[in-house]
Design a protein around this nucleic acid. Sequence first.
DNA 1: ACCGTAATTCGACAATCATCAAAATAGTTC
DNA 2: GAACTATTTTGATGATTGTCGAATTACGGT
Lengths: 121, 121
Amino acid sequence: MPGTKQAASTKLTQEEISLYADMFAALGSEPRLRIMRILLSAHPDGMVVGDVAAELDVTASTLSHHLDKLKSEQLVHVQREGTFLRYSANTVALERLLGFLYAECCTRNKAVEPKKVVCCK
Amino acid sequence: MPGTKQAASTKLTQEEISLYADMFAALGSEPRLRIMRILLSAHPDGMVVGDVAAELDVTASTLSHHLDKLKSEQLVHVQREGTFLRYSANTVALERLLGFLYAECCTRNKAVEPKKVVCCK
DNA sequence: ACCGTAATTCGACAATCATCAAAATAGTTC
DNA sequence: GAACTATTTTGATGATTGTCGAATTACGGT
């Protein structure tokens, strides 16, 4: 059965590259990377903002800005639950990002051996 | 034989997280992501700065700053060759970064299916 | 020692980012 | 609809980033 994803031979447009760069940038700050890890460990349920805040030592407004950034790069989803907002990791976006990095390193060029990434006890 | 890499159960220290965040940040700008792609496609030989510049439409000094950033996050190596400087992708660092992201998404939490990243025509 | 080429470093500037406190919005409950 | 809680938005500020041109360093050849 054929894969549903981008073929390895597909050329990336400039906009796509720019999009991936923005996603990397979103992950490229310690608080935000931490937020993503927190949300991932709560996956697929996600967490409400207050509970994320409890693990992070930032003010509510700062956290909100970070969540907003992650949201605008599509790395997270939001969903209202009464007065709460529940954020969760967007696995589709993460899959794409991971697939991109994997392709760059392992497929398009054989720079990194797949084994070293995937396997290992 | 035991793997040489971090076991899946290893807990990441705060400094490690911060380190990965910095690496993501280094990839999180369009010119730099493009530079990495260029260097990867020239892997393992790498390229001298002038040849990188030829594909990028940025001034020499801007390029130099970007390369410096990539270098300080260990994503590239430099090596002098006469008057030229040859930059190349640091596969060890990329492997670690890719391994981290893979672990976060696929191993530590089963958020993303390995198949979707690795395989696929 | 001098010249030419490669690349970096310096100095400057605008733009973006991270953060906070305070005000505003959204929703629930009474 | 008033009070309460959860969260965002606004406004402000200092810090970092991206970029450029000019000056500088590094190296090789003559």
